[in-house]
Amino acid sequence: MEFIKRFFNSFASPSSLHEAGILSMNMRNLDYVIKYNPRKLLPQVDDKLTTKHMAEKAGVDVPKLLGVVEYQHDIKNLGTLLKQHDCFVIKPAQGSGGKGILVIVGRDGDRYVKASGDTLEFEDINRHVSNILGGLYSLGGKSDVAMIESLIVADPVFNDYSFEGVPDIRMIVFRGFPVMGMLRLATRASDGKANLHQGAVGVGLDIASGKSLRAVQFDLPIEKHPDTGHSFEKLKVPHWDRLLKLTAACYDMTGLGYLGVDIVLDEVHGPLILELNARPGLAIQIANGCGIQPRLELIESLPNWNMPIEEKVAYSKEHFASV
C-alpha cells in the first residue's frame, strides 16, 4: 500500500505544473517550435558552417573559422593551412552529438598533440578530414564539409566547477529576448559531456546578473560539484551583459523565434556562440527551478516586441530577474 501511495505521490498533478508555468514537451513543439521556427529557416542551424558564415556576417562572435575543406581534392591544401596554426579544432559541419571533433592543442615537432596528450601524424589528420567529407559523422551518411576552427581556451573562472571539457551556457532566446539560461558542467558521471540527462550538472542562472540560482544533477538539487566539491553559491558568469546581447543577436541573425543558443566563454575573446538549436530541451526549467511559460507568454503579450537588442536585454533583465 505504502509503495503504491509513494508511486502516486511521485507524480505531480497537471494543474500544479500548470500553475508553476512549466512548459510541456507537446506545447513546446506545437505552440513554440512549429509556430516560431519556420521549417525553411532550420537548415541554417543544422549546418554549422552556414551558422558560422551568418554569424560572421552579422558580427556575432563565434570561434574563428580558420579554414574549410569542402572536397576531397582540397585536402592537398590542408598542409599549408595547418602550418600557420599550432592549435585548432576540426569538426564536421553537420555532425551531431560531438562526433568527429578533433582537438589539437599543440605541436611536438612534426606531430600534432591531441587534448588527451596522444600525438598524431599529419597523415592521421588527413584521413580524419577525408572521413568527415565522406559522411562518416553526419546524419544519414550525407557527404559533409570539414571546418577548421580556432581552439577555445576555457575561461578559468569555471575551472573549479568542471570535471572535464569546456562548460557551456545554454540560453533560451524567444523573439530575441533572453528568457532563461543555465550553465552546463560536465562531471565524471556524464563522462565529460555537458548533457544533463547523462549526469552533467545544470546551474540555473539569474537573467539579471548571471549569478547561480541553484544547481541540479539528475533532476535533483545539489549544493556542490560532485567531483570538485566546490559550492555553486558564489558562481557568477562573467561578461554577462555581452553574453545576453550576443544571444539576443542570434534572433536577428536567424529569424528563429524559439532558439536555444549555446555559448562558451573564451579566456581571450569572451563569450562565443558555439551552436544554435531550434528545438531546445526543457531541462533548463529544472535547473532554474521554475517554469518558462509565464516568461514566454509575457513576451508574446508585448504589443511592440520589435525593439533594439539593448532594449530587449534591458527588458529581460528587468522582468526575468530572479533575486
Binding site: 507524480f11 505531480a12 497537471p14 500548470h18 529544472i286
Partner: peptide, 12 residues
C-alpha cells in the same frame, strides 16, 4: 503534459 512529465517536473 505527458504522463511522464508529471513525474519529471515533480521536483519543481
Amino acid at each position: 503534459y505527458r504522463l511522464l512529465e508529471l513525474r519529471r517536473f515533480k521536483p519543481l
